[in-house]
Design a protein around this nucleic acid. Structure first.
Lengths: 191, 191
DNA sequence: GTCTATAATTTGATAGAC
DNA sequence: GTCTATCAAATTATAGAC
């Protein structure tokens, strides 16, 4: 048959992502992925060394996507306030267009099946958020409190809503809450 | 031998909790628990029907502990502000004295191995927090914004710090951040 | 109530034909 | 590159002696 190998690879990744989010990494066997993707075990192992390497590829891909999202949102604005709002807004949009990605990055216990992955909070996108907060404090936009605290209030609140949305317990789309959420969060940490 | 059965049961639960938090539920086999607890497979299966029932017992126990914690903290104060602060303070203390409990309740993906458990946000302690927020809005202490948003800012920020503490990326003990965190969170949502 | 030995499945992964 | 058939190891759970 020898189909387009890139297509096959992408199919494996998207299928695995869906199963990992739906049932969790450990409850999704290679055979489940094989069946859901309509492929064979052999084909999967031709493209990936192991189940863990599939998870690793997904993780890298999604983290990269989140990183450029944060970089874009951050680069298009000047003030810390505008940057932070753009990041949260982009994360909310991402949840609507690509909920699996957000769910995987936010919910999944990566350390459990990717023991060598650094803690999510020390990855690029989260470092960028911390950096923006610190610059906001330096420029006088944000109260001179501990950056960890400011970040927890502003982004922690947003992540909490993302979690709730992922659990399907919100009655409205995320966008509905954005204005109120950001206003309250920002008032809490701005000078 | 016939040791005290309650002691054995507790030993199984505490050992399993430790392993579940350290290595995750799926990476901890019954044999791991057996070995770490210094017991036999037979003894474990005498006290519990299955691995899942161990997780279920742990979950019920910890959720009950969190519930009374929230109820106590809430019941000892009159204003929404004092109640919320007491809850966050108690959660932070709990993290110091019993980090495994907090970690398990906050981090673990219960739905993955306890498919019948309701989403954590719809359990008693989280319902209580939501209720306190709503009463605060009704009494005029809290801005009349969506209760979900107010809860996300105040408790989401605190949970974010608990997550970071659990990942071991905070340089100071949680108590160090409490005042700043609560002040910022409350300023964000209070009238 | 606790133990050892073992059954029954499932899992991740490999071999080799096409 | 994709497939089928199969392996070896690990896992949950059970049986039955003491």
């Amino acid at each position: 048959m020898a189909r387009d190998p890139q297509k096959t690879r992408d199919l494996i990744l998207s299928t695995a992502l869906r199963l990992f989010v739906e049932k969790g990494y450990f409850a999704s066997s290679i055979h489940d992925i094989r069946h859901a993707a309509g492929l064979s075990i052999g084909s999967i192992y031709h493209h990936f060394d192991s189940k863990e390497s599939i998870a690793s590829a997904i993780y890298d891909d999604l983290l990269g996507r989140m990183t450029s999202m944060v970089e874009d949102a951050s680069g298009s604005h000047m003030t810390a306030k505008a940057k932070c709002r753009a990041i949260i807004s982009a994360m909310f949009s991402m949840h609507e267009t690509d909920p699996l990605t957000v769910h995987f990055v936010l919910h999944a216990r990566h350390r459990e099946f990717l023991p060598d992955a650094p803690p999510i909070c020390s990855t690029r996108p989260f470092e960028l958020m911390k950096q923006i907060i610190e610059e906001g404090i330096a420029s006088g936009e944000i109260h001179p409190i501990d950056p960890v605290v400011a970040g927890a209030i502003l982004f922690g609140g947003a992540m909490r809503l993302l979690h709730l949305a992922g659990d399907g317990v919100l009655s409205k789309p995320l966008d509905f809450y954005l204005d109120e959420l950001f206003e309250a969060g920002w008032r809490g940490i701005s000078v």
